[in-house]
């Protein structure tokens, strides 16, 4: 069966087209204005950041050459994966460093989570009615999460000396800020009826938090803490750059001293570890959420 679309008369078409143009002119003008603004900002920023595309073009080969170079054996006997024993010659040392890095992330997350846990209840509008105490807790958390952890690490390295201690403390403080905020948002969204019940039965403030708030928020707290752990593993791998322990110390040394094969090995170790941790925590969180939903 042949079907034909009805064709509108020309004057009607012209009318429709005119209407369409009129109605789309406004958004079009706005999009053009936006594009111009962005182009202007980009031009200014490129000036400030000394963007030099010819230099990039010239050295683009060097970037890919770098990855080519780090995967060539020093002896010139082909690619690194041809001789894993030589490539991962330091696997014992690196393995220990990697475990230390994970431990730094774990202890940092645990301590930060603990701090955030305590402060979150003070920063929640529905549990603390004193606006000054609440404001102080919130400002403090905000400060902790806005200053990057590596800046804390730089300062702590001077105060506590080189090694993993400043790294753990830097991660703990930054995580406390980030987790404290997330935790207090969870606490502010709880069902208030158990709280009223506990208060009516004459519970003290800690008892009320323990029996009315904690059961509602614990699973969410753990889920956020796991997510933070994932981020902290990445962070812990670079804290060594400023002398705060972990595998970063060896990595920056290898990059600066051009131990190409070591760079490749360490990068691979870090990437694989980060991926495994990502997968593991994702599984755990899904199970946690599943358990939570089946109980609800």
């Amino acid at each position: 069966m042949a079907t034909a679309l009805t064709r509108l008369p020309d004057e009607r078409l012209a009318e429709l087209l005119h209407g369409y143009r009129a109605s789309s002119a406004g958004p079009r003008r706005r999009a053009l204005l936006l594009a111009l603004t962005i182009a202007f900002l980009v031009a200014v920023a490129a000036q400030v950041a000394e963007v030099d595309l010819p230099r990039l073009w010239e050295h683009a080969g060097a970037f890919f050459g770098y990855f080519d170079r780090i995967t060539m054996l020093e002896s010139g006997a082909g690619r690194v994966w041809a001789d894993p024993a030589e490539w991962f010659w330091g696997w014992r040392k690196w393995g220990v460093l990697l475990l230390d890095t994970l431990l730094i992330a774990y202890v940092g997350t645990a301590l930060g989570g603990l701090g955030g846990f305590l402060l979150a209840f003070c920063a929640s509008a529905n549990l603390v009615s004193n606006p000054w105490a609440r404001g102080a807790a919130r400002r403090f958390l905000e400060f902790c999460r806005t200053v990057p952890d590596i800046v804390f690490a730089l300062i702590f390295v001077i105060a506590f000396g080189l090694g993993p201690v400043p790294g753990v403390l830097a991660i703990a403080i930054h995580s406390m800020g980030a987790l404290g905020k997330l935790f207090s948002e969870v606490v502010e969204n709880i069902d208030m009826k158990p709280v009223e019940g506990a208060n009516a039965a004459g519970a003290s403030w800690p008892a009320m938090v323990r029996f009315a708030v904690l059961p509602q928020v614990l699973a969410n707290f753990i889920s956020y803490a796991l997510l933070r752990f994932e981020i902290n593993v990445r962070q812990a791998s670079v804290l060594g750059f400023v002398g705060a322990g972990g595998i970063g110390q060896d990595l920056i040394e290898a990059i600066r001293k051009f131990y190409y094969n070591d760079v490749a090995a360490l990068l691979l170790l870090i990437i694989v570890t980060v991926m495994l941790i990502d997968l593991g925590t994702e599984r755990l969180r899904h199970r946690l959420i599943g358990a939570l939903e089946s109980r609800a």
């Binding site: 400030v48 950041a49 000394e50 963007v51 030099d52 230099r55 990039l56 050295h59 060097a62 970037f63 770098y66 590596i150 990445r234 962070q235 791998s237 670079v238 750059f241 990595l251 920056i252 990059i255 990068l267 870090i270 990437i271 980060v274 991926m275």
Partner: peptide, 29 residues
Amino acid sequence: LDSVRGIDALIWALIWVSVVGLGPFAGVL
């Protein structure tokens, strides 16, 4: 994409510094 994400910006910065030299351009990259 996962592998690129697995390397921290600070490590990328080190690599780019050795490619285009010190300065903000390496930071942009």
